[in-house]
Amino acid sequence: MSFKDEMLCSKSHEYVVKQGDNYVIGLTDYAVEQLGDIVFLELPSAGDSFNKGETFANVESVKAASEIYMPISGEIIEVNDSLVDAPEKLNQDCYENGWLVKVKFSGNDDDFGDLLNYEDYKKEVE
């Protein structure tokens, strides 16, 4: 299984992929490529809860600062802390090792209504 086959993407470039009972959230490779050299990442803490669409993290490339939004509602249960000290790792891999957070879903089916599969997402953004 690869992330790209399984994941759903938001138009603001976050992906979400189901893993067991929970979901893994990160930034798409397209987003990472557009950002360029990533030099700063601010992630939430486990236990924080966010609604779909809320800012849960911040990323900065050499060029600019960007907010990262929750593609679905949920409670943060795990944070990829290793990225905070080495945010440049995101430029190499934003999936297997470069996911941002894992969440316990707290929304409803509507949360997925505007998310696209990778193929459609790529068509949308390119």
Partner: peptide, 20 residues
Amino acid sequence: AKMVDFAGWHMPVQYSSIIE
């Protein structure tokens, strides 16, 4: 190059990586 609009011109912002 990744091209962007700058001061009314379509210009290269980076070819590989800004840091590099």
